[in-house]
Design a protein around this nucleic acid. Structure first.
Lengths: 109, 109
DNA sequence: GATCTATGTTAGCCATGACTTACCGTAAGT
DNA sequence: ACTTACGGTAAGTCATGGCTAACATAGATC
């Protein structure tokens, strides 16, 4: 609910490992803390961040909560990537057109 | 030189604004600090991080240093994204096959 | 070489956040 | 109702990092 930036959510290495595990297949919190080098509350906190970033959802199953990854959560990153990837190609080609890649013109302002 | 994680480099909002500006077209450090809400040394430090992450490259031009974005720097993120995007689709479709996915709303936090 | 401009670097401050321990709530089994 | 299992939450600690101010460095111009 906190609308966390997915880049921030995935920047932490531990949290990214949590997401990568969940992306392969859903897990409960305890399972994750078994093969991750942090405590169960830490995993729980990471899952909250991932959830707030829209990267993960959970469904209760008895006393357990099964977390699974949410493909739409990656869409924001993908959109950003596509945008600036194409902008990079544009700016590169336009600089080539002006010849400012070869010589030392000042193409700024 | 420090091989910084591109996710970490782009997680900071200010640093991402620096990269986004540079992606549109190259800038010198002072130019960036003019329209960014941080001091020039801060911009310089952000540029160092971006450079260590391989997202940016600079060429000296007199006393100025012109920074431009480096498309290959985004490749690592793109590769990661493609990998886990496809993994998500796989695991999702296999769960659908098993009938364990009812809907893809977000009923729980 | 003196000096100005543009930038990198250092030191220190302060906020953020990742982590653990302890605690509390909730669902199932007996 | 009690117990057990599982997981979210609070408090507190510690490390990281983003920021500014002050200093250091390199190129250009005279």
């Amino acid at each position: 609910m906190a609308n966390i930036d997915p880049f921030v959510a995935l920047a932490d290495p531990t949290r990214r490992r949590v997401f990568e595990a969940i992306a392969k297949h859903p897990y409960a919190v305890g399972e994750l803390s078994n093969f991750l080098p942090v405590s169960r509350p830490a995993v729980s906190q990471h899952l909250k961040v991932l959830s707030d970033a829209g990267l993960v959802i959970c469904r209760p199953e008895g006393t357990r909560r099964i977390y699974s990854a949410r493909p739409e959560g990656l869409a924001e990153i993908r959109a950003w990537l596509d945008k600036y990837w194409s902008e990079l190609l544009e700016s590169f080609s336009s600089e080539v057109d002006r010849g400012s890649v070869i010589n030392n013109d000042r193409p700024y302002r």
